[in-house]
Structures are given as C-alpha cells and as structure tokens.
C-alpha cells in the first residue's frame, strides 16, 4: 500500500463500509452552490435536424446534477457537449456557449485532450478496453504523461480502492478486464475515469445495463463521489435521481427538439414542480 496522506482514514473507511471512496472523505464540503459549468443558450443539431434547443443551466461544483426526461430529448447530447465528444460526430453542430470555470470550452485555444482529462465520462454500457485490468488504468495515465512506476502503481491502486474494486481484483490485475462481471466492468470504467484525477464526471445512464445488485453498488459509489467531483448524470430511473441528485434538470421534446423545462434542486423538482409537464412526468403520468 503506497497511498499517502489520508491512508489511515482510508483504511478505516474501507473496513467500515464496503464501497467507500477513500481520500474523498476528507475533501471539500459537500456540494457548494457555486457554478462550475455554465451552459448558455446551447443548441445542437445532427445534420440540420435540431436535437436540443436553447438550453441554459448552471452545474454546481461538487454536486450531483441529474438530467431526466423521456428518451430522445437530448440529455445524452447535452452530456456529450460538456467534454466535446460531439466533435467526433459527423454533421453535429453545436451553438451557444459552455463555460467551464469561466472559460469557453469551444474557444480555439482549448486543448481537447486536456479538457477530457478534466471532464471524465462513464457510458451506459461498460466499455473496458480488451486489455488487462492494470493496462486499462495505466495506459490512459501514460498517455497523459505519467510514467513513474511507483506513481502509476499508486494511482492504479487508489482508483481501484475508490471504486471498491481493489479487494476483488488485486490478485489478478494482469487478468483480462473483459472477464470481470458487468458491474465490476462498470466500476473499472469509473476507476479508469478517476485515475486521471478529473474534476467533473459525466455519466450516461451508468446503471441501466446492470443487474439490480450491481446497479445498487454503482449507485452507492456515485453517491460517495459527491463533494470531490462534480457529477452530471443522465438517468431514466427517477428513484435513482431522487436518491442521489442534489439538482435535477427535466427535459422534454418540443417541436422535435429537446428543451429544458425545469431546473431546480432535486427535492423541489420532485415535490413542488413549477411546470405541469414536470409534475406529470415525475408522478409517472407522462413520458
């Protein structure tokens, strides 16, 4: 074990609770209403067809923000804008501004690879690379310039401890990542994002491809990320959004383009929605 600083607290935490994130417990106070990402008048279209129209919202530092709404309302599209993964989609056009800590992520001087290191992403279907567990974590680190053997080993271990996978895989780090179960694979993918020490994590329905037990484990894990990371999560599971999110944004399709209907603190959005559509959706009447 080469975890530094908070290692004592970490060990206790691991002993006490199976899936506790280590050093994060001593991180900044949970969820400050301080804007980290400001989405301003964002519109997006694929080959001329609008998918998202004029969305503006603030994403707060250290909080979990849930994006909810029916399929096809542009939630995933919004998520992909935040790390500029939309750049990879041919014919995808993005208008409006996304300010990350006050700087426009679409301005010409932005290093997209550095941006994606700061803004990690977890996908619906676990997508570990067909490499060993260790290579899955080391390879991105090496590509971002971290080559010291002891630092690599330390960061691999810390990220696996963070996602509660260390005890399960420490004896087979050189085994194939694809031989892990679905839930383990998804946690490995989270470790792979965490190992780069991002500030923000984007999650696109991270539990929807998992069985209920694995899903609960991953959900607990997301909850423990609050405070150290800013999390934006797309979910169709309203119960999940309600359980883990501090803020929630409700999207709906208007004129075949996704629009933001309501954005509020999660509890208020579920208990005192201001908009009729929101009220109907969260009560399960629509969508």
């Amino acid at each position: 074990m080469t975890i530094t600083g908070e290692s004592e607290g970490l060990v206790e935490a691991v002993d006490g609770k199976a899936y506790t994130v280590g050093p994060l417990l001593s991180g900044p106070p949970c969820c400050r209403p301080e804007t980290q990402i400001r989405v301003d008048g964002l519109s997006l279209g694929y080959g001329g067809k609008p998918a998202l129209k004029d969305v503006s919202l603030d994403i707060y530092r250290g909080c979990i923000t849930a994006l909810i709404g029916p399929s096809g309302c542009g939630k995933t599209s919004l998520l992909s804008c935040l790390n500029r993964l939309t750049d990879l989609i041919p014919g995808c056009r993005v208008e409006g501004r996304i300010m990350l800590d006050g700087a426009d992520i679409h301005s010409s001087g932005v290093d997209v690879q550095a941006l994606r290191q700061r803004v990690g992403m977890i996908f619906q279907k676990p997508n570990p690379f067909p490499l060993s567990i260790r290579r899955n974590l080391e390879m991105p680190l090496k590509e971002h310039g971290i080559t010291g053997r002891s630092e690599l080993a330390a960061r691999v271990e810390r990220s696996l401890v963070d996602v509660g996978l260390w005890d399960e895989v420490k004896d087979r780090l050189d085994g194939a990542a694809l031989s892990l179960s679905g839930g383990q694979q998804q946690r490995l993918c989270m470790a792979r994002a965490l190992v780069l020490e991002p500030e923000i994590l984007l999650m696109d329905e991270p539990c929807s491809a998992l069985d209920p037990l694995s899903s609960a484990v991953v959900e607990d894990l997301i909850e423990t990320l609050r405070g150290r990371y800013t999390v934006v999560i797309v979910t169709h599971n309203l119960g999940q959004a309600r359980r883990i999110a501090n803020y929630a944004a409700f999207f709906w399709v208007n004129d075949r383009a996704g629009t933001l209907i309501e954005f509020d603190q999660c509890r208020r959005l579920f208990e005192q929605p201001r908009h009729q559509l929101t009220a109907a959706y969260v009560r399960g009447l629509r969508g």
Binding site: F129, P140, E143, A193
Partner: peptide, 27 residues
C-alpha cells in the same frame, strides 16, 4: 471493433495515435 472502444478512449482524452497503438492493434 466495437465503436465503444474508440469513443471511450476519446472520452479519456487519448489521441487517435494512442487509440491505434494501445487498443486497435492489440485487439
């Protein structure tokens, strides 16, 4: 190769070259 590898790698900030050398060719 599943496109999820390429997208996942891009989301980690990996360059195209890194994707080819570390993932596409070994796989």
């Amino acid at each position: 190769l599943p496109s999820a590898y390429g997208i996942g790698a891009a989301a980690l900030g990996l360059s195209r070259e890194a994707i080819i050398i570390n993932i596409a060719i070994p796989a």
